[in-house]
Amino acid sequence: MAEYRLMVAPNGARRGRGDHPELPVTPQQTAAAAAACYAAGAQALHLHVRDDAGRHSLDAGRYREALDAVRESAPGMAVQITTESAGVYDTSAQFACLEALRPAAASVSVREMARDTSIATRAYALCAEAGTQVQHILYGPDCIAQLRVWYQDGTVPGAMRDAIFVLGKYTPPVLAHPDGLAAFRDAAADLRLNWTVCAFGRHEHACLLAAIAAGGDARIGFENNIETPEGGLLADNAASVAAFVQAARDAGHRLKEC
């Protein structure tokens, strides 16, 4: 039996209500989804915010509004912001977001931060000073190799050992499969990471169950997948969370106490 932590990513940067009518876009929708997912078993929220047109945003004011809404709807739920660029923002904007918010937790893409190593150094130092729990987004062996170099040269503090392995791709679409986990684990074996897995596409639950069985944690949600294994649409984020928690329980796994 394995114990695991479960985070939900209910929207991401790219999908909208046209992709799924229950995908949250506004702070109020996100807060409602967070509360439902928390009740279903998700312990933490990976938070994205949108502008008035529904596009990905790193605006600190919009984050504050969403953070307040989530704290009210799900006061026991941990919240992690994202600094993902989504092809829109440069590293200066990503740093500015971190500087303005000094969040409790944030996901930071190694690949994106590597676009400007001087800003990367400042960003990781800022997070260390602010006590921000950084989760390194790792898309493959190249990202892991870069992270290793940054540990060695001090760009990334040695205590920042949280990471998320991203299985599959959004664009071009590549369905994740459980057997894709091995390449990440092998490449990162020497780094002593506390790792989580997210997985694109309809095999999401199978990938996350494999991750738990291998000693990792899981991130689920409409950012990565809106489909059942058979290709139909999931009802909503909370339904997916509940189904996964039950599947994990049936496999002998249980949620860690936070």
Rank of each mutant, 00 (worst) to 15 (best):
A120V: 06
H48F: 08
T91Y: 06
Y124L: 03
L98M: 12
K169G: 00
T91F: 05
V110I: 15
M77C: 11
F95V: 00
Q94R: 14
A128D: 15
P141F: 04
R122E: 15
S73V: 00
G131Q: 08
G131P: 09
Y170V: 00
A44K: 07
D68H: 11
V166F: 01
T132S: 11
V79L: 08
P178W: 04
Q135M: 15
H46D: 03
K169L: 14
E129V: 08
A145F: 04
P172A: 04
M113I: 04
I144D: 08
P103D: 13
L138V: 06
D59F: 06
A125L: 06
E65T: 15
L101I: 10
A66F: 04
D59A: 11
R148L: 00
A86K: 09
A69D: 10
F95G: 01
A130Y: 05
R50G: 03
P172E: 02
P157T: 12
A120T: 09
R148I: 00
A69I: 06
D153I: 01
D162G: 00
A114L: 02
P75Q: 06
G131I: 00
I119A: 08
A44N: 00
L98W: 10
V79C: 10
A66E: 09
R55I: 00
T132D: 06
H46I: 03
Y170L: 14
R115L: 07
G54I: 00
R55E: 12
S109T: 03
A86G: 06
H48P: 02
V110W: 06
G41P: 09
H56V: 03
R55P: 00
V108I: 15
S107R: 02
E84C: 05
Y63Q: 03
D59C: 11
V174N: 02
E72A: 15
A78V: 10
H48T: 01
Q80A: 15
D68S: 14
G76P: 11
L45C: 05
A114V: 02
R161Q: 13
G140S: 07
T155I: 12
V79H: 07
V79A: 10
S85E: 13
Y139R: 14
R50P: 02
A69K: 06
P178V: 04
G140W: 02
V156H: 05
V108G: 08
L138E: 12
R50M: 02
R115M: 03
G61Q: 13
T83L: 14
E84S: 12
A53N: 10
V49F: 07
H136L: 07
M160Q: 14
L98N: 07
Q146C: 01
R50N: 04
P178L: 09
S73M: 13
E129A: 15
M77L: 13
R62D: 03
V79R: 10
L67Y: 11
L167Q: 06
V156T: 13
E84G: 12
V149Q: 15
Q133D: 15
S107F: 06
H136W: 01
G131L: 01
S85C: 10
G76H: 12
T117A: 11
E72Y: 03
T132Q: 04
V49Q: 09
V134S: 02
C97P: 09
L58K: 11
A69W: 09
A44M: 13
Q80P: 00
T117C: 01
